[in-house]
Design a protein around this nucleic acid. Sequence first.
DNA 1: GTGAAAGCGCTAACAC
DNA 2: GTGTTAGCGCTTTCAC
Lengths: 336, 336
Amino acid sequence: MKATIKDIAKLAQVSTATVSKVVNCKDEKISSATRERIMGIIEELGYVPNRIASSMVTKRTKTIGLIIPDIANPFFPEIARGAEDLAKKKGYTLILCNSDNDLEKEDTYIDMLQEKMVDGIIFTASSNRSEVSLALNKSSIPVITVDREIDGLKSQKIILVNNEIDAFNATTHMIDCGYKKILHISGPMASKPAQERYKGYLRALEEKRMKPEDNHLITGRYSGEWGFDTVQNLVLKGIDFDGIFCGNDLIALGALKALHSNNIDVPNHVGLVGYDDIYMSQMVTPELTTVKQPNYEMGYQAAEMLLRMIHGEESKLNSESLKTKLVVRGTTRAKN
Amino acid sequence: MKATIKDIAKLAQVSTATVSKVVNCKDEKISSATRERIMGIIEELGYVPNRIASSMVTKRTKTIGLIIPDIANPFFPEIARGAEDLAKKKGYTLILCNSDNDLEKEDTYIDMLQEKMVDGIIFTASSNRSEVSLALNKSSIPVITVDREIDGLKSQKIILVNNEIDAFNATTHMIDCGYKKILHISGPMASKPAQERYKGYLRALEEKRMKPEDNHLITGRYSGEWGFDTVQNLVLKGIDFDGIFCGNDLIALGALKALHSNNIDVPNHVGLVGYDDIYMSQMVTPELTTVKQPNYEMGYQAAEMLLRMIHGEESKLNSESLKTKLVVRGTTRAKN
DNA sequence: GTGAAAGCGCTAACAC
DNA sequence: GTGTTAGCGCTTTCAC
């Protein structure tokens, strides 16, 4: 049988109140004699306080929920790691939820998290979520959304990167490198980031007075296979292009593989730019030119903002925009 | 103010016991009239049961802890995903902990998890952990270790793969392909898996009556940079080799990059075999020959075993060994 | 400095 | 079928 605060109290010949105080370091007014006696007994019995019980009375679980589409997708582990690091630092614990971009799963998780009385939620919502689970809106549980916002969600703060500008810069870079026929292979267009990247891409072409190719936009999934298959297809059909701006690195890596297997020279014949700067983008030859998303920071800051909300520290900002940057590596040729 | 079971009871003119029964679907003996009345009110008020409170009395939190070195390392997300999937399926929730292979952090997490009364822990322990946190051993909390075992930990079950045999097979394959001077670039040798892989590698050489090269074993970290730097060094020093068996895919991918950047033909001049079969191993050219670890299954099965332990279903097995297989792809040449 | 006591929201006997 | 009641282990106010 596990020791409880009562056992400690009895053995130390004090009240549970006193034990509680020393356990929680609210022991300014406890004589060091009793403090030490209590500590000794705690040590001896291997007493572990039951935070569930204390949560009952404090209404705080020191737990936050993280809902992401899929931890196995290389985009998310860094976000999770950032969030977990900050959480741990502050004595919080993080519950991991994989939603697969599935509205129903998201709702299930939101319920579970609320039932477990998490103090807040970090949410990278499904791309196709338009309206919010009513449950989430009724409860006034603090929510931070990362990378995309949810229409109609109150008590929401947002961590964003400026996808439009980044895509604009990336595309402009490609044009400056002399690529003339640049396609955009994207993930699903339902998500805001995807839409904004596309907008930035178009604006770059426009400002350079370049007309987009016919069928310049190819939308699918955020996976390597999708990038590979798409480019294989393009080559097979004899479509003429000399540059690809990809919706993310996975797509770009798949594209690179297809280009290689067709003996198309990257970057001389075709230029390639990805998005995210996942770890692997430096592990291929040539290394991938890409837009670096500060994923770890996004997670870390999201958690930081969330804890501020939880502690009721009002900040004026309802959103925070993090800096990305274009990392020029080997899949685009030198500017001429 | 959030609704409680009392509010529901009052409005429905029943006792809290009755409400509790319908909330928990133990409502065989509740008339459908009252059931529906209660359900209606629950709906109306948006009542969310407080699992913290119920945990107090049931002694079950329906939460499990997952301690891994680092979710940002591509080896672990799949394990986490597998574990989370099973957990979710059974109505459990998963707390993510990144230990960085740091004993102190591991201990902190173990404490936190115990305080939060998790029902069990899935543990991929630090490679250099020799003795167990006493806390963990005193408490009789169920623990599953994945991929490595912890000496002296009671109430432990293990999910393993047979590293020795896999490494043996991989190395034998390389020899059969005609590679003569095969080096082994490994991670830190402190961990059991690393030791066993090395053993398997040696045994393969031995059975083929091949003497290991001088300095055939190079140990470092499980990272792409380490693989890259090591091979760069090898080439720089003019070391003669025609095959590398790598401790994991990250190392192999780094090695591949170094080989490419030195214009060394893979697989014709040098053969390369990795370990793990991470997603990226198929996204490079040529695709990586590697030992496929069933990571997702490891996580899934670990969670499954853990829940069985939690529910007191005794199984005779104290460990489960999962099947791996050698996936022959492009970084080893055809057998002659 | 320390203790008594109320109560957090729920479940599970057992009574009716 | 439904209600009564006694806690689960802890924190906190207020009294001493």
